[in-house]
């Protein structure tokens, strides 16, 4: 007898009211409804249960559900606000809102800090930064010697770790990121301003 993953037979979850999500985020109600079109597409790509699983998230990002990428994992975990292994529609909208061009820079700085604080200790430690640089080298075609990696991490700490205690705290990160706006470039997705044009079919399904 064949077995089918139980993930495929869950009832579709109730999604949060677009008006409430619009109130709590940078999006308008129409934009939230357009995002629902995108959410449906991603959350039905493999398991069809109305929730985004990590494999579906990776498939949407890389066209490959098994690709290993430290930062895709980190982003998924940060989107998964309830920490239950899946992203529901409310989590999707609230998290994407950080990437909206009109979201305050402070929110983007705070999100980037959580992204880099791998172990959630409240500080970015030297070892974490070293680990992230090694991970990106492994996952890309870049090659740097161990000596060069050490030098880059040392230099970064010299610039960012203002009290020289071997870790970057949220205030130090804020100062460093404010002086280096290039670090936050990936924290803004211009597409989000045009989301209703990318998914015009939201009008057909609009409840508002």
């Amino acid at each position: 007898m064949g077995c089918v993953s139980s993930k495929q037979f869950n009832r579709a979850p109730q999604h949060e009211d677009p008006a409430i999500l619009a109130k709590e985020t940078t999006f308008s109600v129409s934009e939230v409804e357009a995002l629902f079109e995108l959410f449906k597409k991603i959350s039905h790509s493999i398991f069809r249960d109305g929730l985004i699983h990590k494999e579906e998230f990776q498939l949407a990002l890389f066209r490959n559900s098994n690709k290993k990428n430290l930062f895709a994992n980190r982003i998924f975990d940060l989107f998964d606000l309830k920490r239950n292994g899946v992203i529901d529609f409310g989590e999707f909208v609230r998290s994407l809102s950080i990437f909206h061009p009109e979201t305050p820079l402070g929110d983007k700085i705070a999100f980037a800090f959580r992204l880099y604080d791998l172990r959630g200790t409240g500080c970015i430690e030297r070892e974490e930064l070293h680990e992230m640089v090694l991970a990106l080298l492994n996952e890309s075609d870049l090659f740097l010697s161990e000596e060069a990696v050490e030098k880059i991490v040392d230099q970064t700490f010299k610039q960012a770790d203002l009290n020289d205690d071997g870790k970057i705290d949220p205030d130090e990160w804020k100062t460093f990121a404010s002086k280096n706006p290039a670090l936050l470039k990936n924290m803004t997705l211009p597409y989000l301003k045009d989301i209703t044009m990318v998914f015009p079919s939201f009008i057909l399904n609009s409840e508002v």
Binding site: S45, L61, L144, I152
Partner: peptide
Amino acid sequence: PEALNAFELISMSAGLNLGNLFDS
């Protein structure tokens, strides 16, 4: 890459573009 700070290197090379979500 040695001229970049580690965070710049990560944000430029992490192979992650959330914009791909919209092309999915």
